[in-house]
Nucleic acid binder design. Sequence first.
DNA 1: TTTCCAAGAATGAACGTTCACTCATTTTAA
DNA 2: TTAAAATGAGTGAACGTTCATTCTTGGAAA
Lengths: 191, 191
Amino acid sequence: MKSTDKRGDIIQAALELIAEKGFHGAPMSEISAKAGVAAGTIYRYFENKEVLINELHQELEKKITEHLQKDYPVSQPLRERFLFLLRELLRYFIKNPLHFRYMEQYFNSPYGISLHRERLLSKHDNHDIVMDIFDQGIEQQIFKELPKAVLFSLAFGSMIILMRDHILGFFTLDDFLIKQVSEACWDAVKR
Amino acid sequence: MKSTDKRGDIIQAALELIAEKGFHGAPMSEISAKAGVAAGTIYRYFENKEVLINELHQELEKKITEHLQKDYPVSQPLRERFLFLLRELLRYFIKNPLHFRYMEQYFNSPYGISLHRERLLSKHDNHDIVMDIFDQGIEQQIFKELPKAVLFSLAFGSMIILMRDHILGFFTLDDFLIKQVSEACWDAVKR
DNA sequence: TTTCCAAGAATGAACGTTCACTCATTTTAA
DNA sequence: TTAAAATGAGTGAACGTTCATTCTTGGAAA
């Protein structure tokens, strides 16, 4: 059974290698080998390694956004929507640890930092489920009186390290623990 | 005025380059150039790059520990000691952003992960100010009923991202904000 | 005090390796 | 038959590290 979706094979191989070994531990030669494709073939689908890295990030982000939008309790109180987001993000990453490891790498690279900067500082109009929650929490004075970026770090900073340590096997985030830590994050941002 | 402490020059150059550009963005050739030393000279003081990276980490950790121990309010209630630690850690890193950036790189590398694993899982007897607080918070039932590693992530995860975003200029952690975010971290772990 | 020299310190060109990327050639498929 | 797709050996740049050579220095000898 030979795959005909070479682009998909390359993306998948890159995801696995980069998530496990980092950008510098994933040479194009290994990516092509893992994808079952010649070295030069990658360059028919991606202009260079940087483009491959960015397109892979975009695909993952799309999948994550889709997961979060599914069953999102639009009309429930802010607290329930906040907890839903944290819980589902944790669940998504627990089910897809490679996606988390990749996003973490990306987040800690120049690519990710400039994207983060854009998101926090520029006023792009396309409303984001996550940003909406923070805007509302501030406006309705449910959250502490702190800059949005600070509230954001308070809530998601913990979550990132928690996911990291779950994947590293320091503890196991089961449904009960997910509930507890989501509520702890809520405690951190709520007034 | 020529420095005679070549080892110190090399360590300092490595700190600056690695903090700014990461392990892979800091070739030995650039480190030696910045230190005002020939390429081969580094190898008189450090067996190889990995050893240099680890010794630099140890020096930074020593400085940070010394800062935290200074004026540590041993006999004050747990809450005050917890807030002291967070506040002083934030202050230290604000004063020494390169140290933070380096520690972050290290933390996100295989070296840092295996060290983290050792610290969390092995029972090394040398009591650490930080670990003591968590042990006591759990024992005295002041903290939420969660694994120590989870409480740890809840408190320090936020802090790491906050520092990162402060250094990236997304907001400015002044004394007032430091107080607010330290208390928010307390809210996250306290019952 | 001056001269000399041995040994440690420092040098930087060179080496082997690895990497991202190219392109002449071959394979595929319509 | 032919154009697009795929191949993989080849290229040059960059890297960590080595080592034959040069420089420095402090004490012994004159």
